[in-house]
Design a protein around this nucleic acid. Structure first.
Length: 460
RNA sequence: GGCCCCGUCGUCUAGUGGUAGGACCGGUCUCUUUCAAGGACCAGGCACGGGUUCGAUUCCCGUCGGGGCCA
């Protein structure tokens, strides 16, 4: 089995393309076959190396490797030209100078039937494939079953421009044949191109591959997925703080389901269970909320060492190199934040207080730091000065005792401490947070808060 | 305009000739030092109309709706 993944290099790898890549990969890996990566474009102008590099980046990030490629279709132009002249020589294709307007006029006169031209070897004449008048071309799709296209509706389509440039349907068919591709898995938007490729293959005398056309992906508004819908490309997914394993799991389940009701499936499990024939026929909507949930599940599951690595990578990407390099504190910070973040991007706001002074959040201060807060904070400060050791279990025990002695609700003591040391009302657990800061830093932040409170109400 | 594809909770899906299960989201409760996470429970769906059949979500046709390709 030889599977090919053939993206068009017109930009970043979008999510639909990523899913197609994943399905190709799963099929190849499951069968132990080869995965060929081919860059599909006959026009060099569109195929910039920058675009290709973006696609390769995305595939590497997703950890979808390939066995051969990337091969550029453009580089194979000589082969395409050769096969075109063979087809013309054999009478399977012919030169026809008809313009688009000519074809339109012809079709109007023939009641919507497929265009049939007449051979006229003039300079600049395009080359068209001869399509049979009768019968039908059947795409035996692995997902949809047989899809029938009556030949009478198919045009004698152009396979090469007047200047000899091969066109897409010709180039793809030639490449598939010459590379011995056996499975073609691609988006639904190619379904109506398939009979043309089949016709070329037949004229070439080649055995066609098996085809599977995946339903397209849409945005939450039901329209074609685009940048308007937030993260629409693999790059954006990475920048939003998603991790590859979660993305693979989510994408695999977007358009395909299993008989058992498992949702969290490792990549090995996906390989073991995936059947292209089971992929759904209807288009799916990309809903980032479920991806967020799933990403959170994966994030909570990874070991601390790996988690620290992931967070460090995210911090470097988002311009917090100093924090990323401070490995000891980063590790401690990650330990207390891991349970709370659904994406890597959400980690920094939670652990920022470990690396930087308390945030300035007037709302938080307003809500929590009343006059009673000052008394409780002062009591806490006194206690904290001598607690030994300054670790989470001890702090929990001692502060718990203080809560009882003061006769207040836990949060009436803990929230002021939280605002004092982090500046915000939302943070990781208070005992862990204190322990990570250490006695010295925690005390100086609390003292600073007390001073600020005293300044705000001089009467007391 | 021509050709083609698709239609199960809001979303992703499982499933069957005897009216539907899971996940996300939402709601309630619980846990709780904040926010999350966790646990429990609830709500919510077979697009519509005809057939075939004892019986259709399931099979067939049509309508409507969504989408794609070409022009």
């Amino acid at each position: 089995m030889r599977v090919r993944f053939a993206p068009s290099p017109t930009g970043a790898l979008h999510i639909g393309g990523a899913r197609t890549a994943l399905y190709n990969w799963l099929v190849a890996r499951r069968a132990g076959g080869a995965l060929v990566l081919r860059i599909e474009d006959t026009d060099r102008d569109r195929s910039t190396s920058e675009n290709v590099e973006q696609i390769l980046d995305a595939l590497r990030w997703l950890e979808l490797d390939w066995d051969q490629g990337p091969l550029s279709q453009f580089e194979r132009r000589d082969r395409h030209a050769e096969r075109i002249s063979e087809l013309v020589g054999a009478g399977r294709a012919y030169r026809d100078p008809a313009t688009a307007a000519d074809v339109k006029r012809w079709k109007e006169q023939h009641g919507g039937a497929g265009y049939r031209g007449t051979e006229r070897d003039e300079p600049g004449a395009a080359i068209r494939l001869r399509v049979p008048d009768d019968g039908e071309t059947v795409v035996d799709d692995l997902i949809r079953g047989p899809v029938r296209f009556p030949n009478e509706h198919l045009d004698d389509f152009v396979i090469a421009r007047g200047d000899g440039t091969p066109l897409y349907n010709l180039a793809v068919a030639v490449d598939d044949a010459e590379m011995g591709i056996t499975e073609v898995i691609r988006g639904d938007d190619h379904l109506s191109n398939t009979p043309k490729q089949l016709l070329v293959l037949e004229a070439l005398g080649a055995t066609p591959p098996r085809y599977a056309h995946l339903p397209l992906l849409h945005g939450p508004d039901g329209r074609k997925l685009s940048k308007r819908h937030g993260a629409a490309s693999v790059q954006e997914l990475r920048d939003s703080g998603y991790i590859p394993a979660a993305v693979r799991n989510y994408l695999a389940l977007l358009g395909w389901g299993t008989t058992d009701d498992e949702t969290i499936l490792s990549t090995d499990e996906l390989v073991a269970r995936f059947r292209i024939e089971q992929v759904g026929k209807s288009s799916a909507i990309f809903d980032e909320r479920k991806l967020r949930w799933m990403n959170g599940r994966y994030l909570r599951d990874v070991g601390l060492n790996d988690y620290v690595g992931l967070v460090a990578g995210e911090l470097r990407r988002s311009g917090h190199e100093d924090a990323a390099a401070d490995s000891e504190r980063l590790r401690a910070a990650c330990e207390i934040a891991q349970e709370k973040a659904q994406t890597l991007r959400e980690v920094w706001p939670l652990i920022r207080f470990v690396f930087e002074p308390p945030a300035d959040d007037p709302d938080a201060w307003e809500r929590v730091m009343g006059p009673e807060a000052a008394e409780r904070l002062a009591a806490a400060a006194e206690l904290l000065r001598d607690v030994e050791p300054f670790d989470a279990p001890t702090l929990e025990r001692e502060l718990g005792g203080l809560v009882e002695r003061l006769g207040v609700k836990p949060k009436q003591l803990y929230q002021p401490i939280r605002v004092a040391i982090t500046g915000t009302t939302v943070s990781p657990g208070i005992f862990e947070s204190l322990a990570v800061l250490g006695r010295g830093e925690a005390m100086s932040r609390i003292d600073a808060a007390l001073a600020r409170l005293a300044a705000a109400s001089p009467g007391r």
